[in-house]
Amino acid sequence: MSAPPAPRLGYAPWGEDLAELTAAGRAAEEAGADTLWASELHRSATVTAAALACATSAARIGTAVALAFTRSPMICALEIMDLDELSGGRAVLGLGTGVRRLNEDWHGVPFDHPSQRLRETVDCVRTFIARCADGEPFEAGGPLASLRVRGYRRPRPVRTRVPLHLAAAGPLTFRLAGEIADGWIGHELGSRDHLRNTVLPALHTGLTAAGRKPEDLEVVASVCVSVHPDPAEALRRAAGNVGFYASVRTYAPLFAAHGLQEPQRRVAEEFRRPGARAGALAAAVDPAMTRALTLCGTREQVAEFLTGYAGTADSLKLTVPVHGLTSHEIRESQAHVLDLIRELRP
């Protein structure tokens, strides 16, 4: 029996400004990255993705992720169709719910029944992309996210179905991704064991419920990678990202699933202290948390570990740690990861 194929490598480029970020995207494409992913926190995912599309020619361009509820389904569909046209058919729409505080406090949008709202949003986006060029009335969605379009016609899109991936971090959304999505995108904190023992069975439950096959779903495992010649320094640099997510209540089940509820609780307590910032919690992070949820070490150590995803993930979305680090440290980490992609390219 032949060995399972190694997962394709994608990368989420970093830059202090868009010029630096797109330069990193070009370098990642040249190194062999299959997909370039644009996140949504400090920048708009779709605008960042557009900049990457203009700077590259071959890699897929994906949002990982665009927040599903902070833009209307129609705007979401328009943006991904524009991106697909701009990139010559290379776009991947990655949608995620975000967390309650982000939606309600930062964006002022509802967060009730997020799994059902996400299901209805996906229906709206897909229906719009498929029907917007025929000029006929159409409706989609449900009580939480709806679309009713009449008197509208858009020039025919590059594709009438753009790949739509869902970021999922819990049982309901795992199953939803398996049921309706073209792909699943993992959280950047996680482990191979969690993917194998928790995520994949839930994805397969959704696939089975919808009468779909495993090959109908791209499994994109996200990995926060910290590469440095000194393993201790690699571990230190990744701790800030762990602390950032440990301060958010929504991610408590992720830490609990790895037996890390007590060290996660201590980080959350530290965050509640006056003046504490989520991005500066590295000192409160137990090294066991960082070892369990990120991938740290020398280039040789990390390369060996990444090969272990063969047979469980179709592709990997690599990120570098950023929280609590200087720009110089992030640039150095990024350079190490680009070298790693170049080394592991098929």
Results as ranks from 00 to 15, higher is better:
68 A>Y: 00
148 R>Q: 15
94 G>S: 08
244 F>T: 02
300 E>Y: 04
104 E>W: 05
153 R>N: 11
327 S>D: 14
20 E>T: 02
289 M>G: 02
319 T>Q: 13
210 A>F: 07
38 A>Q: 09
334 Q>C: 07
95 L>Q: 02
299 R>H: 13
194 H>S: 13
47 V>Q: 15
286 D>Q: 09
43 R>I: 07
128 F>Y: 12
16 E>D: 15
39 S>D: 15
115 S>I: 12
157 P>H: 01
177 A>F: 12
126 R>H: 00
69 F>E: 00
245 Y>V: 02
224 C>N: 15
295 L>K: 07
200 L>D: 07
77 A>Y: 07
17 D>R: 04
185 I>D: 01
177 A>R: 09
272 R>V: 10
233 E>M: 12
200 L>T: 04
288 A>Q: 12
115 S>A: 15
61 I>C: 01
231 P>W: 07
320 V>Y: 10
124 C>K: 08
328 H>M: 13
95 L>Y: 04
335 A>I: 01
264 Q>R: 11
310 A>T: 08
21 L>Q: 07
299 R>T: 15
73 P>T: 06
148 R>V: 14
61 I>M: 03
85 E>K: 06
14 W>V: 06
114 P>W: 00
151 G>A: 10
145 A>C: 13
38 A>V: 08
75 I>L: 15
12 A>H: 06
214 P>V: 09
191 S>F: 09
161 R>H: 11
91 A>D: 09
66 A>G: 11
107 H>D: 10
302 V>S: 09
6 A>G: 05
200 L>P: 05
144 L>Y: 12
270 E>G: 09
226 S>R: 04
292 A>L: 08
165 H>D: 14
169 A>W: 09
49 A>R: 10
99 V>C: 06
79 E>T: 02
24 A>S: 15
177 A>D: 13
276 A>S: 14
171 P>R: 05
145 A>Q: 13
243 G>P: 04
256 A>Y: 06
246 A>K: 00
262 E>H: 08
56 T>Q: 08
155 P>G: 14
24 A>N: 12
318 L>F: 02
160 T>S: 15
4 P>T: 03
232 A>T: 08
205 T>R: 13
150 R>P: 04
333 S>W: 00
231 P>M: 10
333 S>N: 08
174 F>A: 07
101 R>Q: 15
324 G>A: 01
242 V>T: 11
331 R>F: 03
45 A>N: 10
276 A>W: 03
28 A>T: 02
73 P>R: 03
93 L>G: 03
149 V>D: 06
87 S>N: 09
301 Q>K: 05
104 E>D: 08
37 W>Q: 00
268 A>T: 04
51 A>W: 00
133 A>K: 00
201 P>R: 06
118 L>E: 05
246 A>Y: 00
137 P>F: 06
205 T>G: 15
126 R>Y: 00
332 E>H: 13
268 A>G: 08
